[in-house]
Nucleic acid binder design. Structure first.
Length: 451
RNA sequence: UCCGACUUAGCUCAGCUGGUUAGAGCAUCUGACUGUUAAUCAGAGGGUCCACAGUUCAAGUCUGUGAGUCGGAGCCA
């Protein structure tokens, strides 16, 4: 699509414009001088390019203007695109003229040298300009686009779930609470799933894609208090259909990023060959098989005793997996692995029990390789009114708050399934970022809400 | 919430068994340089040693309390 406003050129298109005169609107990423030669690293959001000024080739005035430039000065540079094999993108720009918009009067805080994470987080609003963060944000945009394209192209309808909700969705997590006029307290949604079940009964296949909130005091490199999650919900899908869809989605996202984010993945130093292996079918095993594998491979469960010492146990059936178990299981795989049919006691009330084994529910989690951990959690939902009510009462949830949800099982109840995929965890895995705080522009964490 | 660590120049850090004037690299400023991209070389300026209390002739250094941050665990996407 041609822009009506295109009186300038984006840096990412410069390799197609060798020999032409272009104008770049951007910022000075870095500047180094060498006497009569100035090198200006320019960025414009689409990419980075080096602009070169030689004193003998421009007027005295232009050369002096360039010498005044400082890191993060905003400037429009007009010059000729020249093929240059020493450049990473294959081109450079020979400067003809510059228009200076602003030169910072104070030193830009983030220098090309090393910085600590605390300092960078304090300056997150500026840190986003650096090459690595720039690459991550473009990968994030690609992942989000792949998700929307995948669902839109497969007959799903986007249906937004409310963010302000009257009750705890799963009844387990700690939620952010706020006053809601005269109606008491409202909570920031931790999942759009229950509402997606309602819209799925109206539209067949739906997905909700938006922010979710968890007030848990999690403090790890894969937790945020505010994160984005896409949650498809499908009428007439059983657990196998659900797992098939999850595999299709993840394969599509990874392949889309491989096609469209080569430069960004290179900036991240990402091992592309690992991502290229993410092809269907993924691995699958039941929870019970996973427990048997753990015990067969001598992966013990460490538990602290009262005196502070640790004792190792065989992993007991019925206990939920922690990070050590997930890592051990995934260490054997190069592709994602779906673990399904978890013990009823460790999973949410709305999950359908396995008709062949009352002790497990039709739940599934997808674990990503390379230590990325859980990126998807989903299940087939309980579609029987009486069994669902029984679970609600058993979990001591307020029945009246779930009346509308129970209604879905009274009027044309059907088997249905869905899952949630964490956007940030997926971006972290694909990009190879060390910490989840790097893959969202302004992370919200237990000890940080600024900037 | 639990366990552990850290806090010294704008940034990243060093600073020994407590000792008299507080250290480096980078950044900034000045000068040199036509191939730099974390440029190099020469010079200059730059400090509430997180806060409070204590021990001591003497505290950046030892002790206590508090604050902030980081790392790990649990919870989960």
């Amino acid at each position: 699509m041609e822009s009506r406003y295109k009186s300038y050129h984006s840096i990412e298109k410069l390799p197609e414009l060798v020999g032409e005169t272009v104008t770049i609107n951007g910022w000075v990423h870095n500047i180094t001088g060498k006497g009569k030669l100035q090198f200006i690293q320019m960025r414009d959001g689409s990419g980075f390019v080096q602009c070169v000024v030689f004193k003998g080739n421009v007027s005295e005035e232009v050369f002096e203007q360039c010498k005044q430039l400082a890191q993060e000065a905003s400037v429009s540079i007009t010059g000729t695109v020249r093929a240059e094999e020493r450049s990473a993108t294959g081109v450079e720009v020979d400067v003809q003229s510059v228009r200076i918009w602003q030169i910072p009067t104070e030193q830009y805080p983030i220098t090309p040298k090393e910085h600590g994470i605390e300092f960078l987080m304090e300056h997150r609003h500026l840190w986003l300009r650096s090459t690595r963060q720039h690459a991550i944000m473009r990968i994030r945009a690609a992942v989000a686009k792949a998700i929307r394209d995948f669902f839109d192209g497969n007959g799903f309808k986007l249906q937004d779930s409310p963010i302000l909700t009257p009750n705890a969705c799963e009844g387990t997590s700690t939620l952010f609470e706020t006053k809601y006029f005269d109606l008491g307290n409202a909570y920031l949604s931790q999942s759009g799933q229950l509402y997606a079940e309602a819209t799925a009964m109206a539209l067949g296949k739906v997905y909700t894609f938006g922010p979710t909130f968890r007030a848990e005091k999690s403090k790890t490199k894969r937790h945020l208090t505010e994160f984005w999650m896409v949650e498809p919900e499908m009428a007439y899908f059983d657990l196998n259909d659900d797992m098939d869809l999850a595999e299709d989605l993840v394969e599509y996202i990874v392949q889309y990023c491989l096609q469209t984010c080569q430069r960004e993945l290179a900036v991240m130093g990402r091992d592309i060959s690992k991502l290229e292996k993410v092809r269907r079918p993924f691995h699958r095993m039941s929870y019970t098989e996973a427990v048997e594998w753990l015990n067969a491979n001598n992966v013990k469960l460490n538990k602290k005793n009262e005196d502070g010492t640790e004792t190792q146990y065989d992993f007991p059936w019925g206990e939920d997996f922690g990070a050590p178990q997930e890592e051990a299981i995934m260490s054997q795989f190069e592709k994602p692995c779906i673990i399904h049919r978890y013990p009823t006691e460790v999973k949410a009330f709305y999950m359908k029990r396995d008709p062949e084994n009352e002790k497990v529910v039709m739940a599934m989690d997808m674990l990503a390789p390379e230590g990325a951990g859980e990126i998807i959690g989903g299940s087939q939902r309980e579609d029987n009114h009486d069994l669902l009510l029984e679970r609600i009462l058993h979990e001591q949830l307020p029945q009246e708050a779930f009346q509308w949800y129970l209604d879905l099982r009274k009027y044309g109840s059907v088997p249905h399934s869905g899952f949630g995929l964490g956007l940030e965890r997926t971006v972290k895995w694909i990009s190879g970022a060390e910490h989840i705080r790097e893959v969202i522009p302004f992370p919200r964490m237990i000890y940080r809400i600024v900037p």
